[in-house]
Structure formats: C-alpha cells, structure tokens
Nucleic acid binder design. Structure first.
Length: 195
DNA sequence: CGCGGGATTGACT
DNA sequence: GTCAATCCCGCGT
C-alpha cells in the first residue's frame, strides 16, 4: 500500500525511523525496481549546518523548501547522486536521506547499472550506500522534485514488516553537527529473502 | 581487512 | 576558487 503524503507531513525524526523496513519502488519503461529501506539519516533546518537547507533557499535546495513527500536528489563528488524524501511541511526544509537499501526486484538490472561484479554472497554490497543505490536504480536529477506516487513511478510502500528494531548513530560524511544521532538503521534486515 | 588518497563536477562564496 | 550528505582501488599489515 502506497505511503500517503501525510506520512511525510510529520516530524522528520519519526519519519526517518518509520521509513526503515518500507519498500522503495521505482519504475521505468523496462524495469520495476524494488528495495527494502534499511538505513536513513535525518536532516533538519535552521540549526543544522550539515543540511543543504541551512544556508537558505537556492536552486538546488528549492524542493526541500517548497514540498513535503517529494524526492530531493542532488549531485555530489563529481560522480554520484543521493536520494532524499522531503518532510514536515511547505517552507519547512527538512528531509531524510536514504543511505542503504536491500535489493528485492530487478536485481540483475541493478547489477548491470552498477557495472561491477556481484555474486549471491556479495549482493549485500550492491546498494549499501547513497551513491550506490542511485546508480543501481538509475536515479538522476531527472527524478528530482517528484511527488512520491504511482503516477511518477517513484514511491514508497507499506510492508508486512513490524516491530522494526533500529539503532542510531551520528551521521556519516559530514564535518559539522556530528554529535546528533540522526542516522538510523534497521537492526535485523532479512538477508535471506529470495532474490 | 583496515586505512589513505584520488577522481570528478556542480553549487555556492 | 573551494568544498562536498561518496566510492573504489591499492597498499601495508
């Protein structure tokens, strides 16, 4: 079942925690990609210098200011894209970064997109990073600013998973505001799902 | 297996 | 001109 826009219209920390175990879906003309979200980070505003929104509205950060329940995708380090979902409300530029997912469907196409060798045992390395998962999904700036619904071919679904146990840790790859434990990961992801 | 450094380009100062 | 919410490879242990 599709997560409604109202799911994202809540506190960013709780949205981040509850995204764990949900199913991320992306469709294109050839493939239906599906993953289980197993690691996220929350980015807040005004007091959080690690957030892109900290310095105010720019062409890049516009989506975070103007939407909630939409995708925010940015380009980084000259090579990679990272996927976020916007939260809270309009003019509340908070977001959750999707850091890692577990591949569920169209895995062979993901491997082709990543252009690296994976066998059954190394599949857990296929999409365990924010840049890697966008590469596996073939997500680029074309998918920036989309409302997360079936019409836009990018959305998140409820799953049967319950009692998600998560752990927290300071966020990764940032130089400021590191002390906040706003990175959350799914403690017991099911790795023996059938690919 | 852990660490160090290079690649590479858009966004912002 | 500088920096960056990353990834990968190679080297040393």
């Amino acid at each position: 079942m599709l997560l409604s826009q109202e799911f994202f219209a809540r506190g960013t920390i709780i949205v981040a925690q509850e995204l764990l175990g949900k199913e991320l879906v992306f469709l294109n003309n050839w493939n239906e990609f599906r993953w289980i979200i197993n690691e996220v980070e929350a980015y807040t505003w005004a007091v959080d210098p690690a957030s892109h929104a900290y310095r105010g509205i720019t062409p890049r950060t516009r989506v975070m200011f103007e939407t909630y329940g939409h995708s925010y995708i940015y380009f980084i380090y000259g090579n990679y894209f990272c996927l976020n979902v916007t939260t809270e409300n309009i003019w509340s530029p908070w977001a959750v970064l999707i850091r890692s997912v577990i591949p569920l469907k169209s895995v062979n196409q993901m491997i082709l997109n990543r252009k690296r060798i994976y066998d059954q045992k190394s599949l857990k390395w296929l999409t365990d990073g924010p840049g890697k998962l966008c590469q596996a999904f073939w997500l680029t700036l074309k998918q920036n600013g989309l409302l997360l619904n079936t019409e836009n071919w990018l959305y998140i679904e409820e799953t049967a998973a319950k009692e998600i146990i998560y752990k927290t840790w300071p966020r990764i790859g940032i130089s400021k505001w590191q002390e906040h434990p706003w990175r959350f990961w799914y403690e017991n992801p099911i790795w023996d799902i059938s690919f």
